[in-house]
Design a protein around this nucleic acid. Structure first.
Lengths: 127, 127
DNA sequence: CCTATAGTTAGCTTCATGGCTAACCAATTG
DNA sequence: CAATTGGTTAGCCATGAAGCTAACTATAGG
């Protein structure tokens, strides 16, 4: 009975660590071996490998071993999946802003109507 | 001597939890009180409040208390900041793909030239 | 064949996270 | 004023994450 973490959970958790974000950024520029990836970091290899593993199980990174060197590359799918999430939220958010703006416009119109009682039918109860 | 977590760290960590993502999604649709937010979740209030707090310190959510009710709303800035990160990575990734494609095109051209040795100046060393 | 290289496994610490209960304010409301 | 409602504080516990060292495996190179 596994915990069944959702893919998004794993992707965001993976990206919450600066080391792992740096790895992803590095891999955006092209594939690399574990050693090359680890080089800039002041960290023991086993610790570093854990980060690689987290990235792999999140689906952000793929790797395969040939001979004694493991080569890693980015799998853009997971990255795009996460980006989509933001865009969906933004769409909802902006739809709401639009509705809000429309509401403000309606208020303005009503206030203008209240200020200038002549000419148009007077609304009752308007302050 | 604080750990000085970066803003991105905190935002991604906040979004790595399904409860917190649900809260953010809910808040995209408009502000709400803590009680309203907590209602759909089968969780003790103090536990839920921790999630709210995480969202607040990540900068994703703002809240203020009036009377005895605390109202929460989304602060889109942090969300946009995270989205930007994806877009930057994608830009690098796509630039690389373009370069790769250009490289393939060049290969194709060279191979075609090798296959048809007449007509144009023959390049030396082409396989 | 021997040695150095590139990863890997195992096992240990430490600290953060996510959940709980119980008790505690502080505004509303009857 | 008394009781309810809405949130908060304090403190506990279990789990998982992030780091380390030490020892091991398996290729590549001399």
């Amino acid at each position: 009975m596994a915990n069944q973490l959702s893919r998004l959970d794993q992707v965001f958790a993976a990206l919450a660590d600066p080391t792992r974000r740096a790895i992803v950024m590095r891999l955006c520029a092209g594939e690399a071996s574990v050693g090359e990836l680890a080089d800039p970091f002041d960290m023991a290899l086993p610790s570093f490998m854990k980060h690689i593993h987290v990235l792999e199980t999140s689906g952000l990174v793929l790797s395969e071993k040939s001979g004694r060197v493991r080569t890693c590359r980015l799998s853009p799918d997971a990255l795009v999946g996460a980006e989509d999430w933001f865009q969906q939220q933004r769409a909802i958010w902006e739809a709401r802003l639009d509705r809000f703006e429309a509401y403000v416009m309606k208020l303005k119109k009503e206030r203008a109507a209240a200020k200038r009682p002549s000419r148009t039918t007077r609304k009752k109860g308007a302050e």
